[in-house]
């Protein structure tokens, strides 16, 4: 464990908590893409199947349980409890265009052709594009509530911090995982235009408005 990875995990934790607070406090999931949340739930389920077979640390297990529970809980809140506030009309990104290519790629490009490893690889590839429906929805509505933009900033920062973790681990531990690194870079790059808008607008107290 290193400071970059811990900061990344905490940023990820913060993002999920911010989202839950937004939905619970406003009792609405307006502006949130349910499709992205479904993809995140799939990411965690396929990645954390080793929850019971492979103990790494109490921290690792606790975070996996929280990420699994909160992502499934968020899908429940969006599609059942606060279903009436879910914005179907703007959440239209075709997620099959994300699921199929990542599934095929995980069968072709992986570290080991075993069930667990292919599911882990699929989860890594899927996570790198899972935010696209959300970013697409923000571009369609042309704006986002400030709490939603804080959620996106924390979520985008988490994998950016992981890139620093991978640099650290390469130089100090001689460890690197090219699949996680490439996917992590793609994932972080997808947030770049949002990061620009967030830093130039939201941090100045303005609302996140995309140029129409």
């Amino acid at each position: 464990m290193n400071i970059f990875r811990l900061a990344g995990d905490l940023s990820h934790l913060a993002a999920i908590i911010i989202l839950l607070i937004k939905i619970w406090k406003t009792r609405s999931c307006a502006g949130i893409s349910g499709r992205s949340q479904v993809l995140f739930a799939i990411v965690f389920i396929t990645r954390y199947l080793d929850l019971f077979t492979n103990f790494i640390s109490a921290y690792n297990t606790a975070m996996k349980v929280f990420f699994l529970g909160s992502s499934i809980g968020t899908v429940y809140l969006m599609y059942l409890k606060f279903k009436a506030t879910y914005d179907h009309n703007h959440d239209t990104f075709r997620i099959e265009f994300l699921l199929l290519p990542t599934a095929l790629l995980s069968l072709v490009l992986n570290h080991e052709f075993s069930v667990m490893e292919i599911l882990w690889t699929f989860s890594i590839y899927l996570e790198s594009v899972a935010i696209l429906p959300q970013l697409f929805m923000v571009s369609k509505t042309g704006e986002a509530e400030s709490i939603t933009s804080h959620y996106l900033f924390a979520l985008g920062s988490y994998r950016g911090l992981y890139i620093l973790n991978w640099i650290y681990r390469y130089y100090f531990e001689g460890f690197y995982d090219i699949i996680a690194i490439v996917a992590g870079c793609v994932q972080t790059i997808l947030y770049c235009d949002f990061f620009y808008l967030y830093i130039t607008k939201v941090l100045k107290g303005k609302k996140l408005q995309l140029p129409a």
């Binding site: 990875r5 080793d50 996996k64 080991e112 075993s114 992981y162």
Partner: peptide, 10 residues
């Protein structure tokens, strides 16, 4: 472990 080598990152 029994399910192939482990990934220690979240």
């Amino acid at each position: 472990n029994i399910f192939g080598d482990s990934h220690d990152e979240l």
